[in-house]
Write a protein that binds this DNA or RNA. Structure first.
Lengths: 237, 237
DNA sequence: TAGTGGTCTAGACCACGCC
DNA sequence: GCGTGGTCTAGACCACTAG
């Protein structure tokens, strides 16, 4: 019953928050291992465990003889992994709902196969356009079975993030995904949305997200204008 | 001058070889931490360090109360499977070297920043065109510092896979990647290679691979004609 | 209950970067 | 020389799995 929270996790979370809040910026050195030992009354083994985790998450790097430094984040749309748009890009991101969550039909536009059980359930749909500053960079279309998210509306969104909303309001996490990626001509309709020629190339990403709730699968079709902001991601073991 | 080899590295290499040689197969349990302590005359901390590295490399997983088990599949690194093209697409894949490995210069074509130390080293380069059946689908260009792979030639390739070669011949694993993805018009030259119009969209993927050898970073530029075969991957926690 | 991995302590010595 | 991270020891207690 009682979840014992490891000490290293407190240190890890504390440092991560300070990095995300800008207490430590990219290039800055966080406190040394010995300083963390004193500050949290722990041994170096435990301090290093916390730092090991932050390294795995890509927040810091160790430099022998110098210290642990906050890593630089490139200004790209990192969404290919499980991270999500708003988390990865940071500030300067705006979102406009082109379609608030409504009951809809399963669309032919969904590339990856919709499972039998999903297709028999009613479908929720929403559509958003994402901007960096005033430049539209990504059109995002999402479908998922209606049954699993009671009272789901646009106003519920936590920090404008769908995944963060799932995690915090419904305790549902993304546990896997299947993707297909294409380079295509923009359709007439999409070209108009992005304000580009219909002969321009668009990046088309089809994703099927698996969640910790076996009944909830999310189908997404993303269209990205990568001419100014390429889609990017990083992955570290 | 004398590089002192850490004890955990011996354990790590020993276990990795046994896994690659089939002494332990996927699903098998490797010796417990306490057994490793006795076998190598080390403490549990050191044994765990070795296992931590093997986990990061994707070879094993720990199961609380049971042991450490050899993993079934290699994890995927972001966009493309680490196993590489040949295993991801399946049968009917052919590869043609457009340029066998040679000493070359660091190219302007590399999108992601080349580190200072890499740029100061001499550079190895090779280029391959990948087919599904007789259709060219991916042009692959790779650069890496010359210093780290002695006697590296095209004939060394294990199963036609660069990464498998690194793993089996040099015991080097991919431990991370940074990617940028763009949808672009095909260049004149690339259009000719793929046999398409130069106004056609091409998927352009720029990757910087980090390996278990800190001195070896691999820079790749991939160009894919996704009209018939989209790029895909799956990701599971 | 025995064995496994998960966490943690309180030290130690070494290698690296910098002044 | 001094502070940093890199490795290692010899324990300890806890949580999970399985017979």
């Amino acid at each position: 019953m009682k979840k014992t929270k490891p000490k290293y996790l407190n240190v890890q979370i504390h440092l991560k928050q300070q990095i995300q809040q800008g207490t430590y910026n990219p290039g800055d050195f966080i406190p040394s291992e010995n300083q963390l030992c004193k500050q949290f009354s722990i041994t170096r083994t435990t301090a290093r465990k916390a730092l090991d985790e932050l390294i795995k998450e890509g927040f810091i790097e160790r430099i022998h003889g110098k210290g642990s430094r906050v890593k630089e984040r490139r200004h790209t749309l990192g969404l290919l992994n499980v991270k999500g748009f708003s988390e990865a890009v940071g500030e300067g991101v705006n979102t406009k709902f082109l379609q608030h969550p409504i009951k809809a039909l399963w669309s032919d536009e969904i590339i990856l196969p919709v499972s039998e059980t999903d297709r028999n359930a009613s479908c929720f749909y929403f559509e958003r356009l994402r901007f960096v500053g005033k430049t539209p960079v990504m059109l995002e279309k999402n479908w998922f079975p209606n049954t699993k998210l009671p009272q789901f509306t646009a106003t519920d969104f936590v920090d404008g993030s769908f995944f963060k909303t799932l995690s915090q309001r419904y305790l549902i996490e993304i546990v896997g995904s299947t993707q297909e990626i294409r380079s295509e001509f923009a359709s007439e309709k999409h070209a108009k949305i992005f304000g580009i020629e219909s002969t321009s190339p668009l990046l088309h990403i089809s994703i099927k997200f698996l969640t910790s709730n076996p009944k909830l699968t999310i189908y997404s079709e993303l269209y990205c204008d990568t001419s100014a902001y390429p889609v990017g991601n990083s992955y570290y073991l």
